[in-house]
């Protein structure tokens, strides 16, 4: 191999690396409380980096701060996409601390609701300024047509962000992926179970394709 071609090859390898490593796309994981956002973020992070992002819980508003996992490299068909995953607090228009008083004492419930409201405000801010793409996670056992979902999808569309809709919890008997596809026919819907790890191949393919 000539000196020049060799140089050119290594140069282009360097620039390839520079570009793929310099600008990982920041992908926000959004959705209503309890949809399985953190379970998904943890699964993606564990599959590709070995460690987790945050705590999962059956009690809504477990995530109360946006959390970022940087430089998650996902490999598909020999191609590597590098993304930052941002797990966000479930978005809502109301928080009532009394919803948590069955599970904890009043002080903790009040604190949880305070933190939750700050977290949702923060998540809305991230959505307006700091994300390059969105994974919108829905619990496919629930009715997808809620005001929060419609508003959030509208907000995401108005910012021209690429968005994938994840129909999570397909392991549940009441799950209906079609209900989600019918509610948001303008977007790609990917069925999965973040908890059981079902259909993760397609999940990674779609992430690579949409955000790569």
């Amino acid at each position: 191999m000539g000196l020049l071609t060799g140089l050119r090859d290594s140069l282009s390898r360097v620039t390839d690396r520079l570009f793929s490593e310099q600008e990982p796309k920041r992908i926000g994981i959004y959705g209503p409380p309890n949809a399985g956002k953190t379970t998904l973020a943890n699964r993606i992070a564990r599959d590709w980096t070995g460690d987790a992002v945050g705590a999962e819980s059956h009690i809504p508003h477990e995530t109360r701060r946006a959390r970022r996992k940087e430089d998650v490299e996902i490999e598909r068909d020999g191609k590597t996409v590098s993304i930052d995953i941002v797990d966000t607090p479930g978005v809502t228009t109301k928080v009532d601390y009394e919803e948590f008083t069955d599970e904890m004492d009043k002080d903790d419930a009040v604190r949880r609701s305070r933190e939750a409201t700050e977290g949702v405000a923060e998540a809305m801010h991230w959505l307006r300024e700091d994300v390059d793409g969105v994974i919108y996670v829905l619990d496919s056992a629930e009715d997808p047509i809620t005001q929060v979902n419609t508003m959030l999808i509208g907000i995401i569309e108005s910012r021209d962000l690429p968005v994938l809709i994840f129909a999570n919890k397909i392991d549940l008997e009441e799950s209906s992926v079609k209900r989600i596809e019918d509610a948001f026919p303008q977007h790609e819907t990917v069925p999965l179970s973040a908890k059981e790890g079902e259909n993760m191949d397609e999940v990674y393919e779609q992430i690579a394709e949409y955000f790569g």
Binding site: V91, T93, K94, V95, T117, V120, A121, M124, L127
Partner: peptide, 11 residues
Amino acid sequence: SKLIEVTMTEI
């Protein structure tokens, strides 16, 4: 989006 954000700060 701002309505949601401000609502949250006032809860």
